[in-house]
Amino acid sequence: MNNWNLNNKQMEQCVNCPVHNIDNLVKLGINMSNFDYVIALAGNPNTGKSTIFNNLTGLKQHTGNWPGKTVARAEGGFVYNNNNYKLVDLPGTYSLLSTSTDEDIARNFILFGKPDVTIIVVDSTRLERNLNLVLQILEITDRAILALNLMDELKRNNMSIDLRQLARELGIPVVPMEARQKKGMDELLKYVDEVSSGKFICKPRRLKSLSPKIDNAVNELSKKIKEQLPNLPNTRWVAMRLLEGDQQIIDALNSGEIGNLEPSLKHAEEPV
């Protein structure tokens, strides 16, 4: 009886308790002492990720007009609304599906570290190309914010973006930014707070236009996974990785690491 109460209380708290997976984060080399939330910074190369990272943390990483500056992973911290945030700058990649060290680092961090928010920085002048990565990240995580950077360049080139429509299509907050002029940082921080604390619930877009043959296979497999792991949020993505023969995911499934990513499973076990 007491147990039930406790259990219930835990579940309640967990609406806004951090979602990140602390064990995995430590395994991934992140020092997590004294941090409430973990924020990942992802995006294509040369989109201004490092500039946003520097704006938030006050560190000075070199940012250049060259794809591929951040080779290793950089991390820093900041405080907002009395919460301590850990910010992790992931390597800039065009995709998470191919096989390169950079993409593995970025993918594994988002999947296994389960950051409380992933900020996806995109170059607004090259939105279509950048959406490739955005849609892939939204397959993995529920909690993301789109930072639409380089809005000044967009205007300079006589283009505009319908922000509300974009937010509706993607199901996540969209923040227009000019990171080099430090514009848009306040709104970004506001959404970081709301998404990480669970006040804002994202409904991320998931791929719908797979070819019929592939769609059938993905559905069949993800149904099978769901039978075993009913609370795993991204079964379709796991199914797609299995169909691609991704050994890391196959191993992670067999070793139970994927199973550990189920949110409520973990909390249900804890009180015992």
Binding site: S95, T99, E128
Partner: peptide, 11 residues
């Protein structure tokens, strides 16, 4: 291999 993946990633 890598060349193909790169081209695909670039769209």
């Amino acid at each position: 291999g890598q060349q193909r993946r790169r081209l695909l990633d670039l769209g």
